[in-house]
Every structure is written in C-alpha cells, then in structure tokens.
Simulated assay, not measured.
Amino acid sequence: METQIVYTIPNTALDCLNAQFIYEETDLILKLEYEDEDGMVRSYHIRFIHAQLFRFENEMHCISITAGAYDGVVELVDSAWAMEINSFENEYNRHSPWSKRHFCIYISSTGQLNIIADSFTVEVVK
C-alpha cells in the first residue's frame, strides 16, 4: 500500500476547534474550524464526492495515525480496506462510474476518518 499526501490544511497553529460530519445525498462533507497563527478562525469544508463508505475513530480510540494524515488528507493506494470492499461487491457496483479511492484524515483533538469515495474538493470559508 502506498500513502500519498493530497491536501494539507494550511496554517493550523492549534488543534481543531470544531468538526462536523454531514452526509448529503451521496457526499460526505467535513466542516472543520481551526485557529491560525494570527488568532483568526478559519473554516475548511472538505467534500468527499460519492462517499460510499466511511468510518470514524475518535481520538481516544485511534490505535494509530495514518502517516501524513495529521490535519491533512492522504490517499491510501491499494489499501486492504478498498480491496476488501471490491471483493464482495456485485458485478454492477464493480463497474460503477465512480472510483473507489481510500482517503484518510486525522483531525487534531477529534480523531481519524477513513473514507471510500470518488474524489474530494476543499472550500476555505473564512
């Protein structure tokens, strides 16, 4: 399995102040608030497009942090979890137009989120 850093939340001086998970239609939206070095609160909305599966471990129960995922998104290429999902899906789902990419983010003071989704986008709100 290869781990690729695909996004790092910029200017995070302190831990995450607030994290919200919203499942909307087929997307998982992660709304995060961080305080930067200047004391400004910044909001980041990370939208995982066509999120097919996700699992969350709170900080207290997180056994290990995925390398590179601390306050950033990594892609786990050829992960065991993605291969397991593909192995038991029926023929129709295997040929879906959406990719099954494994993303992971460790949110400081919150926990780790693993997602199987097609792609993701980031919007800086504040």
Rank of each mutant, 00 (worst) to 15 (best):
L76C: 14
T26D: 04
C16V: 06
T66Y: 11
L113E: 01
V122F: 05
S109C: 13
W98N: 14
Y44F: 15
E25C: 02
T66F: 09
I107Q: 02
I49M: 07
A51P: 03
T12Q: 12
I85T: 04
E24T: 11
D118G: 07
P97R: 07
E57K: 08
S87Y: 12
S87V: 06
E57R: 08
V74D: 03
R101K: 15
P10F: 06
E37S: 10
F48V: 02
H50M: 03
N86E: 15
A69S: 15
K31T: 03
I116R: 03
I29T: 00
E57M: 10
Y44T: 00
M1S: 14
T110S: 06
A19N: 07
G111W: 07
G72E: 06
A51S: 09
A19W: 09
I107S: 02
G111E: 03
I9N: 00
N86D: 14
S96F: 13
T66P: 09
S64C: 12
Y7P: 04
H95A: 08
I65D: 05
G111Y: 05
H95N: 15
D71E: 12
E91A: 15
H45P: 01
V41E: 08
E2H: 13
M83R: 14
Q112A: 05
A13I: 03
Y23P: 01
I29L: 05
V77F: 10
R55W: 13
F88V: 08
A69K: 03
L14C: 09
H50D: 01
D118R: 06
S64G: 10
A69Y: 05
Y44Q: 03
M83H: 14
R101Q: 11
A13T: 07
L14T: 11
V122R: 01
Q4E: 13
I65K: 12
G39L: 08
K100G: 07
N58W: 07
Q4R: 14
Q4M: 12
Y34T: 01
D36H: 06
A80V: 13
Q20M: 12
I105W: 03
S43Y: 01
E33N: 13
V41L: 09
E25W: 04
H102T: 04
Y7L: 09
N90G: 15
R101S: 05
E123M: 03
F56P: 04
D15Q: 08
A67S: 12
E2C: 07
Y106E: 05
S87W: 11
I49T: 06
Y106I: 01
F56Q: 04
F54D: 09
V122K: 00
H45V: 01
F48P: 00
N86C: 15
V125C: 10
T26M: 04
S64Q: 10
E59I: 13
